[in-house]
Amino acid sequence: FLTKYFNKQPYPTRREIEKLAASLWLWKSDIASHFSNKRKK
């Protein structure tokens, strides 16, 4: 799911990160680090 979202929006806003974190029961920092790691590849 996160990879699909990343393909659409590689630079999510803070609000989008909060929404993703809430819906996936993850920490915002986990979401942010996932996106930054994907951008590095």
Rank of each mutant, 00 (worst) to 15 (best):
I31H: 08
L24D: 11
A32L: 12
S29M: 08
P12V: 01
L20W: 15
W25H: 14
L2Y: 05
E18C: 05
R15A: 14
L24V: 14
K4M: 00
W27S: 10
D30Q: 12
S23G: 06
L20I: 12
S23T: 10
F6W: 09
L24S: 02
R39L: 13
E18N: 06
R39V: 06
K19Q: 04
P10K: 08
K38R: 09
S23C: 08
P10M: 04
F1M: 07
K8G: 05
E16P: 15
S36K: 13
K38I: 06
L26M: 14
F35L: 11
L24T: 06
K41V: 04
R15M: 06
R15K: 14
A22V: 03
T3S: 12
E16G: 11
S33P: 12
K28N: 05
A22I: 03
S29K: 15
K19G: 05
L24F: 06
L24Q: 01
K38N: 04
R14A: 01
K41T: 08
S33I: 07
L2G: 00
A22P: 04
W25F: 07
F1S: 09
K28F: 15
L24C: 08
Y5G: 00
K4D: 01
D30S: 05
K4R: 02
N7W: 00
L24H: 02
K4A: 01
R14H: 02
E18H: 05
I31Y: 06
F35E: 10
S33Y: 03
N37T: 10
K38F: 04
A21H: 02
I17L: 11
Q9D: 07
L24P: 04
A32Q: 07
R39C: 06
H34N: 09
Q9N: 12
T13R: 10
S23H: 09
E16W: 15
A21Q: 03
A21Y: 07
A21M: 14
I31F: 06
E18I: 01
F1V: 03
N7P: 12
I31M: 13
W27H: 08
Q9M: 09
T3R: 08
S29I: 13
W27C: 06
F35C: 03
A22R: 11
L20P: 08
F35V: 10
F6E: 00
L2E: 00
L20G: 06
K8Q: 00
S29V: 04
